[in-house]
Design a protein around this nucleic acid. Structure first.
Lengths: 336, 336
DNA sequence: CGTGGCTCCTTAAACGTTTAAGTGATTATA
DNA sequence: TATAATCACTTAAACGTTTAAGGAGCCACG
């Protein structure tokens, strides 16, 4: 590997001069800078990121904490879309990303310890149990953090607008003439809370009263439980005419339950999902869902995090809300 | 951040002694080692990875080059599964991962330059145009590399057994009584070549001659082209009774074409895919596909790469073949 | 008692950067 | 002409490790 020393020898200047020239410092004459930059290019020089990090305490590395209960943040379609967008944006700004985990090498590390070990400049946290004390430790540390889909007093956040989103979706269902609307909601967290709020808002705006038997606790990304709940709902005395699911993947479980009962969609029962995963549009019937803007979420999280990292003083936390968009399929029947 | 200096002061020894104690070197007395290790634990010490990397030229960071033509290696279900498994395995062995890209900060870098800049110990390459000269540069460098689904004379490789896999799948189709079998194959690369070989092998073993009009060049992960090709095939004079697709996602396009022609699956035409993505089993009908063992692929790639990294001498390249498994759905009709 | 060989520790240099402080030369100011 | 300011560079220390080389103390042996 070729270093500044090599360039300095070739150019007949000191290493410090090389450093300053390459970093565009002011006290270097134009010709010298030219010479040094050209020689660097010719010799194929690239800075050694470890040395630079050691000296400056800046790694240009951002940590990513994307772990769900199943330890599979990556296989999660929604989050891999967000991550991809995040990654593209950080890379365009000269940052690389590193996954934060509980590394086993030296001895098990907490998330915070691992972050310090790798010296990341900042971290994005998503798809995680925000009540985990290890996660709290990281957020409350001096490392800049941006959370996704979770409000926290000590971090900026990018929030997919679940209240408006669920309201929009429910409005659409109501406006299609449905009155008996079931909602299988997800695990106990901010996202679920907000969607429930949107759901309630919409119902009450449409003067529909909320029947508890139409509200079932389900799970995110779990077709099995959606399957069960759907069967229960449809074999009850007063089956709903439409069922909303925690997400698109769970909805597939519901869809199968409907088929297994020899009912048709949307002929006999309507269904709606959430997320807008790429396969919903190619399903038959195309599934109606609320598409979250994963690209915007990832991008804004990246830009906000970089902004936090690069202005270490007067840290103010921002809350960035990203709206979704109704993806109208044909799985919700128009009842008029 | 607390450093070795802090520990050395607290223990009244030199920094070198601390280093040796923590690294389990031999020339340290048992009591001293105890003292140092305990103090380190108490003080919450963790090594500074940049300093260590600078000195040892080992970062315990592995590069990941997962970019397909659409720049979306992460959103690609198959590869995100492989990556997840790779990541889990490397983390268990004390390695972190970093994405290799063409970083824009200093000036645009090639893959190899970026790899050197970050000082990765090794790299895994997949989902990439292996003919790209930048990729070749990286493989032919002195950085240990493991490729996935591509043979290369200068690297170990983990190969999903596409020959056997496609043969198995085609055997199943033939054994179900089909004789008129169309195959929409993917882009021009090793994977496609091998699958075609398996396809031919199976047909000739079943004494079925290959009709060129049943072989169509399609694209991976492209429902659109699969849709078009399927319509063509089914509206021809002698439509096939079964169509095999490049992958599961493309198959969905075919499925829609069949539905749009008011035909049923598998009543009127059978279809089969490749990959075994998680939604194939929840489709109606469940889709028959050849599931690639993404978990094994990721894990073996990680272990092989780490082995290469940790034994820098006598480099021998291994070729690790991972078998798939037929996932029998109900999309291929039994014709007897 | 001198030599050699342990054992356990320290010294010091090095890895490739950045940067505060210093220096000599030139130019501007009074 | 003396002094100050500016410019363009160099020196040297520092970041936190690792590691070769060195050395003090002790014991054993001839």
């Amino acid at each position: 590997m070729i270093s500044m020393k090599d360039i300095s020898e070739r150019c007949g200047v000191s290493i410090a001069t090389v450093s300053k020239a390459l970093n565009n410092r002011s006290d270097i004459s134009a010709p010298t800078r030219e010479l040094i930059c050209n020689t660097a290019r010719e010799m194929g020089y690239f800075p050694n990121s470890s040395a630079r990090a050691l000296k400056t305490n800046r790694t240009y590395n951002l940590g990513v904490l994307f772990v769900d209960a199943a330890r599979s943040g990556l296989k999660h379609n929604y989050f891999s879309q967000v991550l991809d967008s995040f990654k593209v944006t950080t890379e365009a700004n000269g940052y690389d990303i590193t996954f934060i985990n509980v590394n086993q090498e030296f001895h098990p590390m907490t998330y915070l310890e691992h972050s310090r070990y790798r010296g990341i400049d900042g971290a994005v946290i998503a798809c995680v149990d925000f009540k985990d004390p290890q996660v709290a430790d990281l957020i409350e540390s001096d490392i800049p953090v941006v959370t996704i889909d979770c409000d926290h007093p000590h971090a900026s956040s990018v929030i997919s607008d679940n209240i408006t989103g669920m309201r929009q979706l429910t409005d659409y269902i109501c406006d299609s003439g449905h009155r008996k609307i079931a909602y299988i909601f997800g695990d106990d967290n901010d996202v679920t809370k907000n969607r429930m709020e949107g759901f309630r808002e919409s119902l009450s705006a449409h003067r529909i009263s909320l029947s508890p038997e139409y509200l079932l606790r389900g799970k995110y990304r779990d077709p099995e439980s959606a399957y069960q709940h759907t069967k229960e709902l449809l074999s009850a005395g007063q089956p709903p005419t439409c069922i909303a699911y925690p997400d698109d993947y769970a909805m597939i479980g519901g869809l199968n339950a409907v088929f297994d009962l020899n009912l048709s969609i949307p002929g006999d029962v309507s269904i709606a999902g959430y997320d807008g995963l790429n396969y919903t549009t190619v399903f038959r019937p195309p599934l109606t869902t609320l598409k979250q803007d994963t690209e915007a979420i990832g991008q804004k999280a990246a830009l906000e995090l970089i902004a936090q990292v690069e202005s270490p003083h007067r840290r103010t936390y921002n809350r960035i809300v990203v709206k979704g968009r109704l993806l109208e399929g044909a799985s919700v029947k128009k009842l008029f």
